[in-house]
Amino acid sequence: MQLDLNLLTALDALLEEGSVAGAAARLHVTAPAMSRSLGRIRRTTGDQILVRTGRTMTPTPYAIAVRQQVHELLHQVEGVLAPSREIDLATLERTFTLRWHDSLIALSGPALLAAVRGQAPGVRLRFVAETSGDTPELRRGEVDLEANSNRPGAPDIRAEHVGESSLVIVVRRGHPLTRVRTLTAKRYADAEHINVSRRGNLGNALDTALAGLGVSRRVVATVPTEAAALEFARGSDLLVSVPEATARPAVADTGLAVLPLPLELPLAPVYLSWHQRYDTDHAHAWLRGLARTALARCEAP
């Protein structure tokens, strides 16, 4: 049986107003038109819905039993066919999953969480670690927002450039290189290094740049996160080269110092990525705006 959703609207008005004339006025139709709708509803449901008692009409037991259900169904249908263009942040309850590079979580995560809690206390953020390779969680809807240096190439993934940062060297306080007047590329390469790579790579763009100068560095270890690499540097003479955005909060702690990188390298970009299904999701767009502001802190001063 094919159902006419207009009958649901008419039934809701009839049950709310308790009369054909009242329902007609509410929906801005004529009384005969509403009377015809009531006739169709009676034939569809097999119930009189409203029966005359003197000069008024009284709902049947069936009509009383389904009144609230009809109202809720109509509200759901309207939400599907005519979604709201506004969101009530004060009552919004939702959990967003964010897969960000660990340095971006450390630098921008607290600011994002504070902004979210200040506007929408019912929203929760679920930060998850990056994986060792490209994964389809964005496409499957398991991750809402990604933030890292990689620009996705898939046509259904949106990517927005939100910041960039230059690389610097982080060493322990008192490291021999902190006492040299000019740090050259050769002095930098001759030191021992620890590399940051979630895939376990021992080399990166730094090695390509050094090779162009005729020198090479010795990477003695690789770790998956910058936080771990900084701990290695804190207790040894190892050098770790990280984005300046990561170094700034790290050296606020005792035991670390920042040195300029003696190489000309392109700035490290930061991209915010999401699946196109969320383009018109207003809660998601709100979160993207807050994330964009928080990630702007990644840019070097």
Rank of each mutant, 00 (worst) to 15 (best):
L3K: 07
A228N: 05
E226W: 06
L38N: 06
I49V: 15
P224T: 04
V20H: 01
H161T: 05
L210F: 14
A185Q: 01
D134R: 13
A115R: 12
S216K: 03
T45G: 00
L27V: 12
P266N: 11
D102V: 00
V128A: 06
R173N: 06
R43E: 14
G212P: 10
S35H: 02
V258R: 15
L112D: 08
I41C: 03
D237L: 06
A31Y: 12
R40V: 03
E226C: 09
L287V: 00
S108F: 08
Q276A: 13
T280R: 09
A114Y: 02
A227Y: 06
H282S: 08
T208A: 13
D102F: 07
V51Y: 10
I64H: 15
A247Q: 11
T184F: 12
S149I: 00
I64K: 13
S165C: 03
I49S: 08
H28Q: 15
R117V: 13
A24V: 03
A283Y: 07
S149N: 11
R124V: 12
E160W: 12
I194S: 04
L145F: 14
A221F: 15
L145D: 00
H101P: 03
H161S: 02
T95P: 08
I194N: 06
E142W: 09
T30W: 10
E192M: 13
Q76L: 15
H28A: 07
Q69N: 14
S35K: 07
Y62V: 07
P32R: 04
S108L: 14
G203K: 04
V219E: 06
L107S: 05
I105G: 01
